[in-house]
């Protein structure tokens, strides 16, 4: 149950996407999301979707991962689609009593679905191909200018790194504690809401106790190795932009340009 959480799960590999600089990946994913919203017609959005497909193909990840990350947001997609189909006004395609479906409504629904799918698939690709540590590292570097206005960038990213580092540990721990309490006959499946909430106590208390213990131990271990915050700290892994990063940037830039051109000069059908 717990180990099925895949959003934000790293999927090891050695493809060109895996090896891109995390900073570049972060910037490009933001650009990609903007690009999805700039596209205002079916054709320009398909260019965006095509870019997503190319990125996935380059990452050499199994295709079923796309389905896996979209599954949990399926209700949202369906909800959006239904809302748009029924409530966007325009020339009616179909009318029956109080229900009227317009061409514009159907088009909006289709475009929104493609957008959401691309959005989730794109950001999942980022977390599938980048280790959480590399990701926070990249974030820290990108946010560095904020230090000038006294934002504790290093501390924030250290907190994030530690939190990310301990998610699998805590999931592991939770499963162990659950197994131990089940071995003593704890019943977590049956009963009403209140009984189920009560059944969580034997799991949550040991979990909190161990989380605090771990935090203490970690703080001590960090102090023993003379950790004193971000000032003057050097890194073992220096991030360096290379040819492939600029290549990826160029690719996204071309896609962006193509979408803007398509918006301006493309066919006037399937537009909002």
């Amino acid at each position: 149950m717990l180990k099925d959480i895949t959003f934000g799960q790293y999927f090891p590999g050695d493809s060109i996407i895996h090896r891109l600089d995390p900073r570049m990946k972060l910037i490009l994913i933001v650009a990609y999301i903007v690009l999805l919203f700039v596209a205002d017609g079916l054709f320009s959005l398909l260019i965006g979707a095509g870019m997503g497909v190319i990125f996935y193909a380059l990452s050499k990840l199994p295709w079923k991962l796309v389905i896996k990350c979209i599954k949990p947001i399926m209700p949202i997609i369906i909800f959006t689609a239904v809302l748009n189909i029924f409530f966007v006004e325009g020339e009616p395609l179909f009318e029956w009593k109080f229900i009227s479906i317009s061409e514009k409504g159907v088009l909006t629904a289709v475009l929104m679905c493609i957008r959401i799918i691309c959005l989730i698939a794109g950001s999942s690709l980022l977390t599938y191909t980048t280790t959480p540590i590399a990701l926070t590292d990249g974030l820290e570097r990108l946010m560095k200018p904020l230090q000038k206005i006294k934002v504790p960038v290093h501390e924030l990213s250290m907190m994030m790194t530690i939190a990310l580092r301990f998610i699998p540990t805590l999931i592991d721990e939770t499963q162990k504690i659950m197994a131990a309490q089940k071995a003593r006959g704890a019943d977590m499946e049956s009963g009403n809401v209140i009984q189920k909430a009560k059944a969580l106590i034997p799991i949550l208390i040991p979990l909190f106790v161990s989380a605090f213990r771990r935090a203490d131990e970690l703080a001590l271990a960090m102090e023993c190795r003379c950790y004193h915050g971000g000032e003057g700290r050097t890194r073992m892994k220096q991030l360096k932009l290379s040819g492939k990063d600029f290549g990826a940037a160029l690719f996204v830039a071309i896609g962006f340009a193509a979408i803007i051109l398509m918006n301006m000069f493309g066919p006037e059908v399937f537009r909002l």
């Binding site: 504690i177 131990a180 006959g185 106790v209 161990s210």
Partner: peptide, 14 residues
């Protein structure tokens, strides 16, 4: 579970 009692590693954490 009651018939077969299982004591895990480091059971004090439970």
């Amino acid at each position: 579970r009651f018939k077969v009692g299982l004591v895990f590693q480091y059971p004090e954490h439970q």
